[in-house]
Design a protein around this nucleic acid. Structure first.
Length: 275
DNA sequence: TATAATGTTTGAAC
DNA sequence: AGTTCAAACATTAT
């Protein structure tokens, strides 16, 4: 589950704010939650955070985790089940932790946060010049919330080969990379909410490039050894990307970006989880 | 039907 | 001692 999906989760959990957990079940074995009131719901990158008095429940959905509200999956044992009034919340195959001390999160690196700081990201991406751009986009310290789908779509849109080293990116490309990492994540959220995400993926698990009809390559890349999908024709390993293309498509303000920038769906966050 | 994978942590190996 | 690496995890989609 990537960052935008967690934004949807925070919205779906909003009705439970201010309500008390009456029962707790599951293999996570967290009886300490019983009787506590849900005080905040937020996310940082791919961390889903439920704030209670004195502690925070941190859920990470990893590759195949999920949650359900009032719809228990058949033949599946939830890792954690919370009863709140008549409602039941189920968490499946996820990593769950109780944070007893307030964890310090830097929201300025979260692409889905209203505190997202593109200038900070721009500085950070140049630190390791040997890093491949595919690995860079997956760095949760720089682009918290970005996962493998967003990585591949961003690189396709920018026509950058996933194995390009940071040293080989020009200044305009770096700016476009930071901007598109943010803007595409919000586009992902919009499509996901409308149930149109899959149909709008251009490169991830596709076979043929929509732009040039060339075959799409699927290859394990970089230090992280994650799969990259790219067009072998329009994302060349060594090429100077037409700077007019970048300016036209990614560096001019767009209606889409403007609209999304105007109003963040998330509440303002400080830099730490409230205990 | 078998395999891959919206991801991270862990602990062994180096 | 610090870094690197593969395994483990769980379950859906292809």
């Amino acid at each position: 589950m990537e960052g935008p999906s967690l934004i949807i989760a925070t919205e779906e959990f909003a009705p439970f704010l201010g309500r008390k957990v009456s029962c707790v079940y599951g293999s996570a074995n967290l009886p300490s939650l019983k009787g506590l009131t849900l005080e905040s719901v937020s996310s940082w990158g791919k961390h889903f955070l439920l704030g209670f008095t004195g502690l925070t429940l941190r859920v990470h959905f990893l590759l195949s985790g999920s949650y359900r509200i009032n719809q228990r999956r058949e033949n599946r044992e939830p890792k954690l089940e919370l009863k709140i009034g008549k409602d039941r919340i189920y968490f499946y195959s996820c990593s769950i932790r109780i944070l007893e001390k307030p964890e310090v999160y830097d929201w300025s690196v979260d692409v889905m946060s209203s505190s997202w700081d593109p200038k900070k990201a721009l500085k950070a991406i140049s630190l390791d010049r040997d890093e491949m751009v595919a690995d860079l986009l997956m760095s949760q310290k720089i682009f918290a919330g970005i996962g493998n789908i967003i990585k591949n779509e961003v690189l396709y849109n920018l026509r950058i080969h996933p194995e390009t080293r940071i040293r080989d990116l020009g200044a305009k490309e770096k700016i476009a990379l930071v901007k598109e990492a943010h803007d595409y994540s919000w586009q992902f959220l919009e499509w996901k909410k409308k149930g149109e995400l899959k149909r709008n993926l251009k490169i991830f698990r596709r076979r043929q490039c929509q732009r040039c009809l060339a075959p799409i390559v699927r290859e394990v890349t970089g230090r992280l050894k994650r799969v990259s999908w790219y067009c072998e024709l329009c994302q060349q390993p060594v090429q100077t990307i037409d700077s007019n293309f970048l300016i036209e498509h990614f560096l001019k303000p767009k209606a889409r970006s403007k609209k999304l920038r105007k109003k963040s769906l998330r509440p303002q966050q400080g830099d730490k989880v409230k205990p």
